[in-house]
Amino acid sequence: MAKYQVTRELDERGEVCPVPDVETKRAIKAAKDGDILMVRIDYAMSKERVPEAVRKVGSEVLEIEEVSSSEWNIYIKVKK
């Protein structure tokens, strides 16, 4: 499973929108260039919104991995 060298993991499952977007952006802000973040989400809308928020701040979405029914891991490469 260790596809990426994950620096930090965020568990946003069950959180109310826009908490996943906001916390992801905060984590990117706090991270260093090249860090890999893994964000766990379980809401379909977040699967579309979180990557959009990531791109807005100039970082890269490496992969959106479907873990199980309505559960995803988003891997993010921080770019600064």
């Binding site: 568990d11 499952r13 069950g14 959180e15 109310v16 379980d42 379909a44 029914s69 309505s70 559960e71």
Partner: peptide, 21 residues
Amino acid sequence: ALISGEFKFRMPKNPITYLQV
């Protein structure tokens, strides 16, 4: 949601969220 595989019982880790909502 059921048809598109997007239904799930979702609960936040932090129970304070229930008070907030």
